[in-house]
Design a protein around this nucleic acid. Structure first.
Lengths: 248, 248
DNA sequence: TATGACACTTGATCCATGTCATTGAATGGG
DNA sequence: CCCATTCAATGACATGGATCAAGTGTCATA
């Protein structure tokens, strides 16, 4: 089952509506009534395609609204003056990014495509206006913001308290569950990002990522071939992060 | 000039309104008209006092609303199963916390007082309802959420890419500027948190915090006496973080 | 003043990761 | 198809901080 729209020509993509989008139940429209969805729909800028490695925005750019990934993938990151990137998040189809512009109406980080990528833009002014009459949309947006914040918090726990082994295991499990959520295999998938980006997300060196992948393979936990990942032993992977999850 | 309300008896505190609160221009009411502020005011639960080391909420607790610190200080944190705390943020008077409950109407982290502390509660349901008719409040809340998110992002950059020296320097500058914002000295202040908590925030060991404080003193950058901090050379401190700030 | 609990400091040691250098594998352009 | 370039893997080595183990200062209580 081909779920993304990679190979549909641009002319057709322009007609895509939230209602017909296979990702709509993962994205902002989730929980809205049909009527509400249609109303929202009118204000969404429809997706365009971008090559790999395109800058979508950078610090200082005017904040337009939220971005929803349709296909491909996006990384958001901050940089040190010396050039090192701290990846803040990877954004896969159905996921939203760009919230870093909310504070000052200016983007605060970089957003770059990982791959051939298309996305929708949900203009903030329109969303804000719709919020006045659509309590469900208000709640959905708050839910989204809360979710992003909680993801960042988990990421802080990872960077502050986890070993390199634990970080990589956590990362693989996160990607796996996000593929699963979209209806794809949780155990066999292609990583959309480079080793460099993985290292930047996990706060470790590229070489360490390589060595850890090797070590995971030797323990028969995963099989790695370039970007292709096959998780052989989900149990062991879960064990590795058993001490990392905060108590509920 | 005594700006906080620590020593005013509870009976008087109950009469405190946003309008008369010296922190209101740092807190959620900022930017609201007098009329709007009064309307908001009616729904705010007025502060109570708590001892040091009181748990305000913990993961799983029902999300009531946003918390605004009036006096004292609060830390929010996640824990590993093995007990290590990753401090997510320190919250000083005029600052808001508790947003971690937005995703699922349940708090996701712990919030604990650092000191004798009082705070206000802004019930979420009331805020949400007011948002329908008060666009300024909507914007103020979005601004707040965006700000929190950007703070978390800076914190991610710190944990992922900065050396221990840089982390501590960044930390001191952050506390300093937040004291200044409230009208206090930017160069002489008492840290409201323990070494252990500083270590937990910076993702380093307590021993490293001690050693770095010593090293900073030997370079005549600061003078440290237990919790009392005097910044002697703000220039040097800024130099230490010169490479850490993301480009604008 | 004595006593215990706790927070902080300090020193010695060790190791998980970073850094540097090299090689090999994949990819893209002409 | 070849060459140039980027990306990934691997080995050798270095080191920033963690860990472990005392020691010291501070505060509360009796």
């Amino acid at each position: 089952m081909q779920k993304n729209m990679n190979h549909i020509p641009l002319s057709k993509q322009l007609k895509i509506s939230c209602e017909s989008c296979s990702l709509s139940d993962l994205c902002l429209p989730r929980g809205l009534s049909l009527k509400e969805m249609e109303e929202l729909d009118d204000h969404i800028e429809r997706p365009r395609n971008f090559d790999q490695n395109c800058q979508i925005y950078q610090p200082g750019d005017k904040f337009i609204g939220f971005y929803a990934v349709r296909s491909g993938g996006v990384k958001t990151y901050l940089t040190k003056k010396t050039g090192e990137q701290q990846i803040l998040g990877f954004h896969l189809p159905g996921e939203v990014f760009g919230l870093d512009g909310l504070e000052n109406s200016k983007q605060r980080c970089y957003a770059t495509t990982l791959d051939n990528t298309s996305y929708c833009i949900l203009p903030y002014e329109k969303l804000d206006a719709l919020c006045e009459t659509m309590p469900e949309l208000r709640h959905q947006i708050c839910h989204l913001l809360g979710h992003e914040m909680n993801c960042d918090h988990s990421h802080l726990l990872l960077l502050g308290q986890q070993t390199a082994h634990e970080r990589l295991a956590t990362f693989l499990l996160s990607i796996s569950s996000r593929f699963k959520r979209r209806g794809f295999s949780a155990t066999s998938f292609m990583l959309p990002m480079s080793r460099h980006d993985i290292a930047g997300y996990l706060g470790i060196a590229v070489e360490t990522v390589s060595r850890l992948f090797k070590s995971f393979q030797e323990k028969d936990i995963v099989k790695i071939n370039r970007k292709q990942v096959d998780i052989l032993d989900m149990g062991k992977l879960n064990e590795m992060v058993a001490n990392c999850e905060e108590t509920d």
